[in-house]
């Protein structure tokens, strides 16, 4: 055998060995035990769940519909639950949705003061955040993401579940309490690049509402949407228009609030924004400071602060329309 032939034989051997090794390795994945695998409803490759909650060993988790995942449950002592994403061959039967915290049954013996977070990625670059803080029942929680923050109040079990339209991928969300307890969690938001987001954030007692005029969107049926007359994500998805998400609890004294409008990336879209200040609100006569937020694929998330003088606010009846605070959303066609 000539030298070249020897070399070829050697290389072929190495390639075969590597190939067999690879097949064996894949085989482990393909034919391994599926005892702990739970399949729920239809798949969404953009979906993922991150949690630091302690799962109960060998109990099945049920995740809120309509998304679908395959869940590989870890052993009892594992602190992170991994969820493997799969695309289902067909839509699985739908079970009644359950709030995610109901499935995390924490027995009194296990109860401690640990702050537990779960972040589930939803379609439309939204993250469903579930907070379990048994020692912060009915307490105010501050939720911060991408430079924006808002306040909510936990229920009498120390829990809250909230859907947040996010501004980064992965989206990191931090929660904190007045006593200093805090924790953060991240979740992917893979379809963020297909969206535009614009909104306002403020702190205090001012009663502000984002007003959106979608008259330029032919698909839009109700062209005027506000924080009160809002539209669900599902409705907006079906009719090809946008929706507003309102974050923050008005029961929190001088709380932080966020109102965000989201719409799919389309060309030839013009959306007009106004910010309406209700003059009967307690914050009417204080200097108004608003953070405006804008997310676009090209520029990412941009937050800008606006100081707005409101002369004789309470003397004015009803509401004051603040124009040009939030720049209109224009996605012009090139030709």
């Amino acid at each position: 055998m000539r030298l070249n032939d020897k070399a070829i034989s050697f290389i072929t051997g190495v390639v075969l060995l590597l190939g067999v090794g690879t097949v064996v390795h894949k085989g482990d994945e393909l034919f391994g035990s599926k005892a702990n695998t739970t399949q729920v409803a239809k798949a969404d490759t953009g979906l993922a769940v991150q949690t630091d909650a302690q799962p109960i060993a060998h109990e099945r988790s049920s995740i809120q519909m309509p998304d679908s995942i395959t869940t590989a449950l870890p052993s009892a002592k594992t602190t992170i639950t991994d969820f493997e994403l799969v695309r289902a061959e067909q839509i699985a039967p739908v079970t009644m949705p359950q709030p995610i915290y109901n499935t995390l049954q924490i027995s009194p013996a296990e109860m401690d003061c640990a702050l537990k977070l779960t972040a589930k990625s939803l379609r439309g670059a939204r993250v469903q955040l579930a907070v379990i803080a048994p020692c912060h029942k009915n307490k105010i929680i501050t939720i911060t993401h991408a430079g924006l923050r808002f306040n909510e109040i936990l229920d009498d079990k120390g829990m809250i579940t909230i859907i947040i339209p996010v501004l980064s991928d992965p989206a990191t969300i931090e929660v904190s309490f007045a006593d200093g307890a805090s924790k953060s969690i991240s979740a992917p938001a893979k379809d963020l690049s297909s969206l535009q987001r614009s909104g306002i954030a403020w702190v205090g007692q001012a009663d502000l509402q984002l007003h959106v005029d979608e008259r330029y969107i032919k698909a839009s049926k109700n062209t005027q949407i506000t924080a009160q007359n809002t539209r669900s994500y599902k409705q907006s998805y079906l009719q090809g228009s946008g929706y507003i998400t309102t974050l923050g609890n008005t029961d929190v004294e001088s709380g932080a609030f966020v109102q965000i409008y989201s719409i799919e990336n389309l060309t030839g879209v013009f959306v007009d924004f106004n910010v309406v200040l209700h003059t009967k609100s307690r914050g009417c006569n204080t200097p108004l400071m608003i953070n405006t937020v804008r997310y676009s694929t090209v520029l990412g998330a941009q937050i800008s602060r606006k100081n707005i003088p409101i002369a004789n606010c309470s003397a004015q009846k009803g509401k004051i329309v603040l124009k040009n605070i939030l720049r209109d959303l224009i996605v012009a066609q090139r030709n």
Binding site: S304, R305, K306
Partner: peptide, 8 residues
């Protein structure tokens, strides 16, 4: 950078 607009 950070941006702050004071509207007069």
């Amino acid at each position: 950078a950070k941006i702050e607009t004071k509207i007069k």
